[in-house]
Simulated assay, not measured.
Amino acid sequence: MTQDTLSEAEYDAITDAAAHWCMRVHAADCTAEEQRAFQQWHDTHPLHAFEYQAMLEIWDVAGDLPRPEPASVKPVAKSSRPWRQFAIAAGVCALALPLAAYSGWNLGWLPDSYQHFAATDEIRQVTLSDGSQLELNLNTDLTFSNYKDERRVTLKQGEAFFTVSHDVSHPFVVRAGEGEIRVTGTRFNVWMYQDQVRVNLVEGSVLVTSNRSLPGDGLRLGPSMQARYQQGDYMPQINQTYASDTSLTWRDGKLVLGNLALSEALPLINRYLNKPLELADTRTGAIRVGGIYNIKALNNLPDSLPKVLPVYLTRNKQGNPVINSMPQQPPKS
Rank of each mutant, 00 (worst) to 15 (best):
L107N: 15
G108Q: 11
W109A: 15
Y114W: 05
Y114I: 12
Q115W: 06
Q115K: 04
Q115I: 03
H116R: 11
H116Y: 10
F117A: 01
F117P: 01
F117S: 01
A118E: 14
A118K: 04
A119L: 05
Q125N: 11
Q125C: 10
Q125W: 02
T127R: 05
T127G: 01
S129I: 02
D130K: 02
G131S: 12
G131Y: 11
S132Q: 06
S132D: 13
Q133L: 10
L134P: 10
L136S: 06
L136C: 01
N137Y: 06
L138R: 11
N139W: 02
N139R: 15
T143Q: 14
T143E: 12
T143F: 12
T143M: 07
S145E: 05
S145C: 10
N146P: 00
K148E: 01
K148L: 14
K148M: 08
D149S: 04
D149H: 10
R151I: 06
R152C: 00
V153C: 07
T154Y: 06
L155A: 03
K156S: 07
Q157W: 00
G158P: 09
G158I: 11
E159H: 13
E159I: 13
F161T: 09
F162N: 14
F162T: 14
T163G: 12
V164I: 15
S165V: 03
H166K: 15
D167A: 13
D167M: 04
D167L: 02
